[in-house]
């Protein structure tokens, strides 16, 4: 899987302030019977966006403004729960390239990095500002590892593993990297 390289994203934010938004909320299990990864964006947050009869609710995720947002700001401990990669697939297909929270669950974070979705854990002050200012036009600079908030909101650094950063900025995936290690892997297999 390859994706568009990600260096800088400037976009309005979409804010979902609830804490512990789990991957069952992001993409309910009944949509997991798909055998391809495409087109899951229409089911992102399905049960928030559609009534039982399939009609759209008035949730802001259904607005055109939301669909133009590339940066999702979630409440604390975003992405907990199931390891389904359908969660980042649905978010990127919806249009997001960045998720920001004060804590992001491990597996979701790993899955996001592998699919061109940048998960950013940011300090509480900046997170609070983002929660209080939905729709703010924010710049995420992966080269500088910075989130720049408008209107004197300030600039905040974030940490990202050097390897993941390299993969995201170049739009390369880990499969090729592992393929290149096949000699080392064979040597490891031989010696045990």
């Amino acid at each position: 899987m390859s994706f568009q390289p990600l260096k800088t994203v400037t976009s309005k934010t979409l804010v979902l302030p609830a804490e512990n938004i789990d991957t069952d909320q992001i993409i309910p299990a009944r949509f997991l019977t798909v055998t391809s990864r495409d087109g899951l964006g229409k089911h992102a947050f399905n049960d928030w966006r559609y009534d039982e009869d399939g009609s759209e609710t008035d949730h802001e995720l259904n607005s055109d403004a939301a669909k133009a947002c590339q940066i999702l700001v979630g409440g604390h401990n975003f992405g907990c729960g199931s390891s389904r990669e359908h969660a980042p697939w649905s978010l990127t297909d919806y249009g997001f390239r960045v998720v920001i929270s004060s804590e992001i669950a491990d597996i979701f974070r790993g899955n996001s990095l592998k699919n061109g979705l940048l998960p950013i854990v940011i300090e509480k002050r900046a997170h609070d500002w983002l929660l209080d200012n939905p729709g703010a036009e924010v710049t995420v600079d992966l080269d500088a590892c910075e989130v720049r908030l408008p209107r004197n909101g300030g600039t905040y650094g974030f940490e990202i593993d050097a390897f993941s950063r390299h993969c995201l900025m170049e739009g390369v995936d880990e499969m090729g990297y592992l393929q290149n290690q096949s000699d080392a892997i064979a040597a490891f297999e031989a010696k045990r």
Partner: peptide, 20 residues
């Protein structure tokens, strides 16, 4: 531990995953 589908592919092809 649980892995995502991309890593399922990594393990199928390389029997390894990248992890800190």
């Amino acid at each position: 531990f649980g892995i995502g589908t991309t890593q399922v592919g990594h393990v199928l092809a390389n029997q390894c995953i990248l992890m800190r």
